[in-house]
Write a protein that binds this DNA or RNA. Sequence first.
RNA 1: GCGAGAGUGGCGGAAUUGGCAGACGCACUAGACUUAGGAUCUAGCGGGUAUCCCGUGGGGGUUCGAGUCCCCCCUCUCGCACCA
Length: 867
Amino acid sequence: MNERYQAPAIEEKWQRRWEADASFRAVEDPKRPKYYLLEMFPYPSGRIHMGHVRNYSIGDVVARYKKMRGYNVLHPMGWDAFGLPAENAAIERGIHPESWTRENIAYMKAQLKRMGLAYDWTRELATCEPEYYRWNQWIFLKLYERGLAYKKSSSVNWCPSCETVLANEQVVDGGCWRCETPVLQKELEQWFFRITSYAEELLADLERLTGWPEKVVTMQRNWIGRSVGAEILFPLVGREGALRVFTTRADTVFGATFVSLAVEHPLALEIARGTPQEQAVREFIERTRKANPLRRGEDEAEKEGVFTGAWCTNPFTAERIPVYLANFVLMEYGTGAVMAVPAHDQRDFEFARKYGLPIRVVVQPQDGTLEASTLAAAYVEDGTMVDSGVFTGLPSALGRDKIAAFLEEKGWGKAAVRYRLRDWGISRQRYWGTPIPIVYCDGCGIVPVPERDLPVTLPRDVPFTGKGGSPLAENESFVKVACPKCGGKARRETDTMDTFVDSSWYFLRFTSPASDAAPFAPEKARYWMPVDQYIGGIEHAVLHLLYARFFTKALRDLGLIEAGEPFANLLTQGMVCKETYRCAEHGWLLPAELDGSEREGWRCPECGRAVVRGRVEKMSKSKKNIVDPEDLIAAYGADTARLFTLFAAPPEKDLEWSDQGVEGAYRFLSRLWRFVAQNQEALVSATGDIVLEGQPLPEELRALRRQIHRTIKRVTNDIEERFHFNTAIAAVMELLNALSSSAAAAMKMPGGRALVKGGAETIVQLLYPFVPHIASELWECLGHAEGLEAASWPTYLSRALEEAELNIVVQVNGKVRSRISVPADAGAELIENEALSDPRVRGFIRSRPVRRVVQVPRRLVNIVVEE
RNA sequence: GCGAGAGUGGCGGAAUUGGCAGACGCACUAGACUUAGGAUCUAGCGGGUAUCCCGUGGGGGUUCGAGUCCCCCCUCUCGCACCA
């Protein structure tokens, strides 16, 4: 055995072995408990980055650990392969998106393999394969049948110069990413999934997600945004119809002194027609709609509006009140119309002040009395209703219910629940995505592509100019089609699906990736689902995770699966960050580019100015603080890369990169290697185990044995209960430290060699999930023919944890003053006497009377004396 | 503004339930071995006026005992943000 730890040869050897043996192949087996572990699949951007390394290292620990614990583990990997960057590469560099994507997948797959991850590669999938996306289309058709997919007009980002739709990512500072032309909004007919039908269940089931971080649950709850309130009809004066408003404060309705509409409200222009206000209303609508919607909501923009010339009636006061348009009213929420109560809503208050509209106080706080004339800001809290007819005197909360009931009675409105959640727009005017399986026929209208004609495949021959409409529209042979219904001339839908559709059910596909009769085989899904542990970045807290939950429920209602939630436990790992350097004038700098030194301070190579030694930020190319995993693996090996990312911080926290920290991880592995190499002969020839029953052991060996068992207990606990891999690794480091310093002496004692060998084996076993290559190699060096991937997790023996003597801390008035050593079976009385007679303790007590003695069994005695 | 989370040595971070604050690692210091050391090993390493005292963002409280529980305040991070 070589004295030096040489990672590359070891890692290659074991990776080859695992591949040849298909060690991580998952096969359904009803006799064993299953464990489905999944990391969020990557977008094939070209190369893996540190975030991937961290994500997959965390997952691999769990996969290998669970396997050792006897679970039938499913741990698959695939590619979220559709998306914009592929198309951008085509536009910028003339590479076909498909070639670009396939090349990236091949490269990244090789990179992942070099990390030694325990995947079942036979289940690999890529969402850009027709075998995969045909099922996107199939699911789309099923949703369409049930009215869960529908078409409506909606606005998109539009570059007037390139004459193309832009994705949000392609809008940079309000301009087109290519030509910087200001981006406009344009209305297009687009497809939507009716996720709002599931709003209530998506919200209610959050309660069941006890294995999810509270933060993610809260974010989803806010995103769904349920509001309980009422709809109230305000009849228009002098014409038919009424304005329907939504409010959560029906208790303030007697204070509604005007009504505000969104500029997009269907009646906005209509009610102004023929009034002197018509021209002003027209102009206001135009001006407001033109304003960049990304800007419109920004930094509490000035409240603005215009009188429509129309009036309506507040049904509760029978008063005639004016109707305004207001720039802050949103068409997408509620009804696009609000009753304005200036005294009790800050926006209405500002608006009323600006346009000289009446302010009427109808809720008074418990203490004090508000005057409309002296109000400095709206009073938005609950209180007691005043000037509110028969409701006067009621507390606001009760008033809300009473008024809602009253509304229904009178036919003036009804109780209502509203959600912030909007339907999911899935149409993308892009090439590199799943074609939407719809045909438009002049005679038959919208015709779904029949199931037997799936998949609608992407044609390869398409121009990528970045200009003009959807690229697919340019391919005549794709667009022109016979209507499936009447056989007449028809055109295909040329939009593709949002890539979030692809990732909303891929975890189901992994259960039977070759299924060609259905998106997945129901019995396989039944065996593997739900995902027991899902791991990924917090950036997907809302969209991906909400869409996946929605799909799971929708597929359940189609009768395809049973479970209503896809992910039983969720771990959101933190970001990988690193220190940055920046010159005020010349921007971000690489550490290697800097002039100067640590001692004198770093300077900019361009201007000689002192560099702002920066904040620790998420690794990104633009900030010049990335570390390429490939370089890291080449320099230290995959095990070191894995160990460092796992040791530097607990998984859910951000990880700060440190080159010295990497060195430290490598040093630890080298030390472990050397320990085994230097003692190999003695260890391999030893017999016995870490239990060593039936022979009396000297205290030194008992202590060592205790630590071995204690370490097993701690590491097991840290992995199992908390995923705190950093402390698990720390515990193993401590064990190696203890073993190294006591090995020489211990091995001279009877039973010592067996114990040291057992200790070394324990370390190797415990480290296997973290650093599988070196652990496997050392396991073999210790004389095991069977690989660790088939071995079981070590167990500790409670008996071995017992100590002959207890070290007890003695406090006087809560401060540690001494320690005493007592036999393990000592009673409380003996311990108290020992503590009281300890000379150091006596020195602190002096002659003061002891008022009380508190004991924590086996750990601590606190003697309370008079001060 | 609303919601969530976090403030512990020079740094990353430990401290399952209220019970020895600072595990483990990094950096640093001294020494050993060395032609050499950015290898390895040994020892030290919160602060101070050092047999003792102080110390977990600040201030109060509960308790025999508080990093941990309660109240008030400060700072930072993240999410949402005119949602009626």
